[in-house]
């Protein structure tokens, strides 16, 4: 997978299980980070030309370009709306959180 995935983190249960000093495995995600999202981006794929400007600009890197259509990892999208604002084809719309699932 290109993006790190959420893992079930095993916290140390004794001093012996603590790492040597304050370091931890890199690229470890233990929880989603989308709680502050108010609006969600919805891509109208027919309009999308895959110029990938949104993919480049997204501060979270949540847009995926591996497949035919762009995908958004909603576990880490904060709903900032930058992608929608910058899309040269207006192919992304921000909708109220919750409504995206209904469409």
């Amino acid at each position: 997978m290109a993006k790190p995935q959420i893992v079930k983190f095993k916290f140390p249960e004794s001093l012996e299980e603590m790492p040597l000093g304050p370091s931890a495995a890199a690229g470890i995600l233990t929880e989603p980070n989308a709680g502050w999202r108010v609006q969600s981006p919805v891509i109208e794929h027919p309009k999308c030309t895959k110029c990938l400007l949104c993919w480049v600009l997204c501060p979270e890197g949540v847009i995926g370009k591996e497949n035919e259509q762009l995908e958004i990892d909603m576990n880490y999208c904060k709903g900032c709306g930058l992608c929608a604002h910058e899309c040269p084809k207006d192919a992304i719309t921000m909708v109220q959180e919750g409504e995206a699932d209904d469409q």
Partner: peptide, 28 residues
Amino acid sequence: KVKNLTDKEYLYGHKACPGCGLGTIGRL
């Protein structure tokens, strides 16, 4: 060229404020 850029995200899931350019800078 954008198509040559890796899909791998080396900075991901951070807690910067929404819209902050910091994430774009770090990941690119």
